[in-house]
C-alpha cells in the first residue's frame, strides 16, 4: 500500500474576536513514503500546525488530506486513534514524557490497551536499546537529561514501528551536541527502518540535510527543495 501523504488545498483558520487568522493557506504538498522531510520557517509560519494536521492531531478548516488513498477526516475518533497508532510516531520539542512513568513504561505507553503480535516489554526494551538507553529503562524522566529524555520520546514513537515519525523541533530544547545525536538517530532510523521522517525546525543547517526541504512563511509554502541522497 502506498504510504505517501498528499495535501490538497489545505486551509487552517483560527477565528478569534471576529478576526480570521490563516495559519495555513492553500497548502498542496505530496510527501513520499520513507522520505526524510524537513519543514522550516520562522515562528508563526504554520509549520507546527502543518505537522499537527499531518499527525491527525488537528483538523484542517478546509481541504483534503490523503494518506495513500484514505481520507482521515471522515474516520471516527477510534479509527483515527487506530490510524495514529499504526502510522504515526510523534516526537515533541518538550518531549512530553509522562513524569510519573519510568522510561520503559513511557515507551510502552502507546501499546497500552492494544493487542499486538509481539511481546510488548521485549519490544520496548529493544527500541530503548536502539536509542541507547537500555540501562536507563527504570529511570523516571526527571532522572534523565534532556537528550536522554528526547531519546526516550523517540523510542516511544518507534515502539510500534510507524510509517512516519513526526518530530516538532526535537532538538529545540537541546544543546547542539545532544541535538546532533538526536538528529543522527532520526537519520539512521529513516534509513534502517524505512520510516518517513517529518521534521519541523527553524535550524536551516538541520533542514538542509533532509531529502526534502519545505520552506514556509505566513502559512504558505514558499519552496519545496528535493535533494538527491548522497
Amino acid at each position: 500500500m502506498n504510504k505517501s501523504i498528499e495535501f490538497r488545498d489545505i486551509d487552517k483558520v483560527f477565528k478569534g474576536d471576529g478576526i480570521e487568522t490563516y495559519a495555513l493557506k492553500k497548502i498542496n504538498l505530496l510527501l513520499n513514503e520513507g522520505d526524510f522531510v524537513s519543514i522550516i520557517g520562522p515562528s508563526g509560519s504554520g509549520k507546527s500546525t502543518l505537522l499537527s494536521i499531518i499527525g491527525t492531531l488537528d483538523v484542517p478548516s478546509s481541504g483534503e488530506i490523503l494518506y495513500g488513498d484514505k481520507t482521515v477526516h471522515q474516520m471516527s475518533n477510534n479509527e483515527i486513534a487506530d490510524f495514529r497508532f499504526e502510522n504515526i510516531g510523534f516526537i515533541f520539542q518538550q518531549f512530553h514524557l509522562i513524569p510519573t512513568m519510568t522510561a520503559l513504561e513511557n515507551v510502552m505507553s502507546p501499546l497500552f490497551g492494544r493487542k499486538v503480535t509481539y511481546n510488548k516489554k521485549e519490544r520496548a526494551i529493544q527500541v530503548l536499546e536502539q536509542v541507547g538507553l537500555k540501562d536507563k529503562m527504570n529511570s523516571l524522566p526527571s532522572q534523565l537529561s534532556g537528550g536522554q529524555q528526547q531519546r526516550v520520546a523517540i523510542a516511544r514513537a518507534l515502539v510500534h514501528k510507524p510509517k512516519w515519525l513526526l518530530a516538532d523541533e526535537p532538538t529545540g530544547n537541546l544543546d547542539t551536541d545532544t541535538g546532533e545525536t538526536v538528529y543522527e538517530l532520526l537519520t539512521s532510523l529513516n534509513k534502517s527502518k524505512q520510516c518517513g521522517v517529518i521534521l519541523v525546525t527553524h535550524d536551516s543547517i538541520l533542514a538542509d540535510r533532509a531529502n526534502t526541504k519545505v520552506e514556509m512563511r505566513d502559512g504558505e509554502i514558499v519552496s519545496v527543495c528535493q535533494r538527491q541522497p548522497v
Binding site: G55, A81, R84, A157
Partner: peptide, 8 residues
Amino acid sequence: IFLALGWR
C-alpha cells in the same frame, strides 16, 4: 499525549 500516541 496519550491520544497523540494513538490511544483510543
